[in-house]
Design a protein around this nucleic acid. Structure first.
Length: 673
DNA sequence: TTTTCCCTAAACATAG
DNA sequence: GCTATGTTTAGGGAAA
């Protein structure tokens, strides 16, 4: 009886905009028990009024002020009772099911906020090992338990004090005094909110390793006080919710608003529809809209006909979900309900604190991430250790660093395919890689490093078909392959091409025919395809001044400091093929650059994986072929045309067609120029 | 906005 | 006729 009455009283509070509402707000705020204030429905209002009137009747004749005071006292008592209960439940979780009507008032507030925070960065699950996750989880739980205990203890004391003072001076107090008390309560509420935000943030961190709210039973069940599982919240609140509440409202609100309304809504004597500082609509990623609403607004509410605080037909003001049919109505609502006043200011302040906390949290998490990455040697900004023939360019995982794919035996979607920058990871999309691919051609080293990954993971390699074909051809001792052998190389090297057979073969043929860098040579056993390196490099004339990407890569390559002046000069002079080869820029290979002829001859001293990871026994032809080019083009031509017509006879003269093509393109490549 | 590159699809031709 | 191979064209997406 007591509980019901009080809770109904609180519910009725929001219906009163100012005077009465403010009083109820005190009660609500003090106890944090006014959760029911969501009160979307008139029915609930009505019931609240009934309860209030019932209380008045039971007391016989009461003045309005007395009635309000009585209601307030009731609410405070309920709140106090609730807090006691919660405090006890901290030590013995799971025994408050029977008292949900009261406990649900407050607990879900934090729980709801928690649960909404749970989803956020699931990546941590992929990063951390299960033991780490477990340890982190336990740590967070212990921290939260401690905070909750402190929090409820503090709130209980405050409420008790408030109750005593009110009982003493309540009846004679004029309305001004009530207003002062209201301010005091609001301050308390602010404190509460801050505490809740702390809980939220702690849980947010916990959410890093937890599951989605819908699945969050695991982590949340472990929460000491929260004995109420988030998944139970809707039913819980519905059970307690107003019977007369429209179905759509109940469905929309899912009871969460009930939970979270407690603090802000009633405490600020907000309109009936006020709801928690946190929005009820979790985003797909699990973040509450309120926390991201401002940012979201830039993304999906940027249209001129929208407003950052207006979305999905309702007001996004924290704690307000007033339905507005259109923007005009919303603007009107905004100007009337959220004008510049104490309440709005307070809410704004709270929101600022939320944002501030989140920013702090973000900073912490970022720092942690950096530390983790540093620990895992994933130092993007750190200069790569030289002797890395690999990616001079934008490879996010420089050599020697951890390559997720390599370690990821998981054929599933990797965290990030190697060599695939921040760009598209969509396995279904085209494997394009403009700057890296052609200019720097880290393909050989990258393939060497991530050979196993590509072999097992159904991930499309981030290289163009041309690059792959070239790589396939150059990997062979005699630099020539039949079409079928190229096919086999694709399927052997990449799981992706084993599965997706529909289009890529056609694409391979198309590329072979289209690009002049691929030279078809008639062989005794048929036609084989070779690579005209010079032509391949010509596809985009790599001029130092012409290609920003190239220049950048050059700079980054030079930053390793291993390039000597002469080599740099050589680079500058031989403006083309060399530049496109990361291995050439690689300091570690710089020493081996000059003895080009050796590598050209196929000396297995391939500069490839300095980390010695999964380097295939085969050489990485592209590199020496480049080197050959750099040094002297004739040698390169000799090299590339070795597989020429007379089969295995690396005689340049025997290479008829390629030479012709080259001559043609020297005049101006039609394809790639 | 335009250009360029790449991918994809398709049609067609040729040879075995 | 079928298949594999090779050539060519066209259109769309994405990046520069």
């Amino acid at each position: 009886m007591m509980v019901e009455s009080a809770s109904e009283t609180i519910r009725s509070a929001p219906s009163g905009q100012n005077g009465v509402g403010s009083l109820s707000a005190q009660a609500d705020g003090g106890g944090g028990a006014g959760t029911a204030g969501t009160a979307p429905a008139a029915g609930r209002d009505a019931s609240g009024r009934e309860a209030a009137s019932g209380g008045a009747d039971s007391n016989g004749e009461m003045s309005p002020a007395e009635l309000l005071h009585f209601q307030q006292q009731q609410a405070l008592q309920v709140a106090r009772q609730f807090l006691l209960q919660q405090a006890s439940s901290l030590n013995s979780p799971g025994n408050n099911d029977s008292k949900q009507s009261a406990s649900a008032v407050q607990v879900p507030v934090s729980v709801a906020m928690m649960s909404q925070q749970m989803l956020t960065p699931q990546q941590m699950q992929q990063i951390l090992s299960p033991p780490q996750l477990q340890a982190l989880l336990q740590q967070q739980q212990a921290l939260m338990l401690q905070q909750l205990q402190e929090y409820y203890k503090k709130q209980q004391e405050q409420l008790h004090l408030q109750l005593l003072t009110q009982q003493q001076a309540g009846k004679q107090q004029p309305k001004e005094a009530l207003g002062n008390k209201q301010l005091a309560f609001q301050q308390q509420l602010l404190q509460m909110q801050q505490l809740q935000q702390q809980h939220l943030l702690n849980l947010q961190r916990q959410g890093l390793v937890s599951l989605q709210p819908s699945q969050a039973s695991g982590p949340l069940q472990a929460l000491p006080q929260a004995a109420v599982c988030p998944t139970d919240l809707p039913q819980l609140w519905k059970g307690e919710g107003a019977p007369g509440q429209p179905a759509e409202d109940s469905g929309r609100q899912e009871g969460l608003d009930l939970a979270s309304t407690a603090v802000t809504a009633t405490s600020f004597a907000s309109p009936p529809k006020v709801s928690p500082p946190l929005s009820h609509h979790p985003l797909p990623n699990g973040q509450p809209t309120v926390l991201t609403s401002r940012r979201d607004s830039s993304s999906h509410e940027e249209t001129p006909s929208s407003h950052p605080l207006y979305g999905h037909g309702e007001c996004k003001w924290p704690g307000c979900e007033t339905l507005c049919e259109d923007l005009g109505q919303f603007i009107k609502h905004l100007n009337t309900e959220h004008a510049l006043d104490d309440r709005s200011t307070a809410q704004c302040r709270v929101q600022m604190q939320v944002v501030q906390q989140l920013e702090i949290q973000l900073a912490k998490e970022s720092e942690r991430l950096q530390a983790m990455m540093a620990h895992l040697h994933m130092r993007p900004s750190e200069p790569k250790p030289f002797s890395q023939p690999v990616t001079v360019s934008a490879d996010p995982f420089p050599d020697g660093l951890v390559h997720p794919p390599t370690s990821a035996a998981a054929p599933v979607t990797p965290l990030r395919p190697p060599g695939l920058g921040s760009a598209s990871l969509h396995s279904g999309g085209p494997a394009r890689r403009r700057s890296n691919d052609k200019f720097c051609s880290p393909i050989s080293s990258e393939l060497a490093q991530n050979h196993e990954f590509y072999k097992n993971a159904d991930v499309r390699p981030p290289f163009t078909y041309a690059s792959l074909i070239r790589q396939a051809i150059l990997e062979t001792p005699d630099r020539q392959l039949t079409l079928n052998e190229i096919y086999n190389w694709f399927t052997r090297m990449f799981a992706y091409f084993r599965r997706n057979t529909a289009t890529w073969k056609n694409a391979v043929r198309h590329n072979l025919s289209l690009h002049k860098c691929f030279v078809r040579v008639e062989n005794v056993k048929g036609a084989v395809w070779t690579v005209d390196e010079r032509e391949y490099q010509k596809r985009r004339p790599p001029k130092m001044t012409g290609s920003p990407t190239l220049v950048k890569n050059m700079i980054s390559g030079l930053s390793y400091g291993a390039l000597n002046a002469s080599y740099q000069a050589a680079l500058a002079e031989s403006s083309f093929p060399l530049l496109s080869n990361p291995g050439m820029l690689n300091p570690g290979s710089a020493s081996s650059l000059l003895p080009l002829s050796q590598e050209d001859l196929g000396v297995p001293g391939e500069p490839l994986p300095s980390n010695g990871s999964s380097s295939p026994p085969r050489l990485s032809p592209p590199q020496y072929s480049h080197q050959i080019q750099v040094k002297e083009e004739p040698a390169e031509a000799e090299e590339d045309r070795r597989p020429g017509p007379p089969l295995g006879a690396p005689n340049p003269s025997t290479v008829g067609p390629p030479e012709d093509r080259d001559l043609e393109e020297d005049l101006g490549g039609e394809d790639m120029s």
